[in-house]
Computed example of a mutant assay.
Amino acid sequence: MPIEQPEINVSHDKREQILNGAMQIFLTHGYAGTSMDRVAATAGVSKQTIYSHFQDKQGLFTALIDRVTRDRFQIVFGALPLAGEPERVLRKIAYTLLHAIAEDREYIAFIRLVIGESGRFPELARQFVGTIPKRAIATLSQYFESHRELNCPDPEATTRIFLGSLVSFVLMQNVLEGETVMPMDGDRLVERLINLVLKSS
């Protein structure tokens, strides 16, 4: 029986253990207020174990960005490449983004963290934008481009209008607490947005 597989599993489990602990500390204390000592204590590992998996604090946060965004991208976009009738595909993306993602408290808290720290640590914001936003724009742009029946003259701009409207709604309502000040039914936005995008394409 090979011994490599258990060792790999242990290493993966330890990495996840560290990331889970790191998420708690980063969300509680912010990026600047997070120390490897705090992460180690929360994760139940030694500092040396953290350094053996992640080079430094920025490397740890980068790994956290990768994990958080990879999981949420899969939830919103599913199997790639995107396939199906445009109205159905756009509606699925929109509803998933507004409901599954907007109600994901950990993800909303993580976005708050990235935005809050972006002034002092702009590299963190750039790393975040380079993951799920950049990949999402490329994925949907490719879909628009491949559906010539939409007659879409600028797939990237159309994608940015579509996704930007949805993200702006989530930020306004869920991150900035706008739902208590200027509530609006997200489904209403989705219907008008899809109608706008498909008619203008």
Rank of each mutant, 00 (worst) to 15 (best):
G59F: 10
F144P: 00
L64S: 10
T69R: 15
P133V: 09
F128T: 02
I111D: 01
L64A: 06
T131F: 13
K92W: 13
F128K: 14
T96W: 06
F128S: 05
G178C: 06
L90T: 01
P86E: 05
D154N: 13
S118G: 05
G119T: 12
L140V: 14
Q55A: 12
P86I: 06
E117F: 12
R135K: 11
R72Y: 04
F110A: 12
H53W: 00
V175D: 00
G164K: 05
F61W: 03
D66M: 12
R67Q: 10
I137M: 09
E103D: 10
F110C: 02
T158N: 04
E179R: 15
R105Y: 03
S141Q: 09
E103S: 09
L90V: 10
P133M: 15
L140Y: 13
T49K: 05
K92H: 11
V89H: 10
G164V: 11
A109H: 03
I111A: 05
R126P: 01
D104G: 04
I132P: 00
R112N: 06
G84S: 07
P122R: 06
L82M: 12
C152K: 15
Q142N: 11
A83L: 06
D56E: 04
T131Q: 12
Q127C: 13
V167D: 00
L98W: 11
L176E: 03
L113H: 06
L166M: 04
T159W: 11
I161W: 11
F162I: 03
L171F: 12
L60R: 03
R105W: 02
G178Q: 00
I75Q: 02
R105F: 02
V114K: 12
V129G: 08
F169W: 11
A94W: 09
V167H: 08
F121I: 06
G116Q: 05
T158K: 02
V114M: 13
A94G: 04
S118L: 12
S146D: 03
S141R: 15
H147F: 13
Q142C: 09
C152W: 13
R67T: 11
T159N: 01
A83Y: 03
G59M: 10
Q58W: 15
L124S: 08
Y107N: 04
I115G: 02
L80D: 02
L124H: 13
G164A: 09
I115Y: 15
V114I: 15
D71H: 12
F110K: 06
V129K: 15
T159M: 02
H99M: 05
R120Q: 11
K134R: 09
C152Q: 05
L113W: 12
T159D: 00
T69K: 13
P155F: 05
I93P: 01
T180R: 08
F110R: 07
L166N: 01
R72V: 04
V167I: 14
P153S: 01
Q74A: 14
N151S: 07
L97F: 13
L124E: 07
K57L: 03
S52A: 14
E179L: 15
T159F: 07
V76Y: 07
I132Y: 04
L150I: 01
G178Y: 04
G59A: 06
G78T: 12
I161Q: 01
K57N: 10
P122S: 10
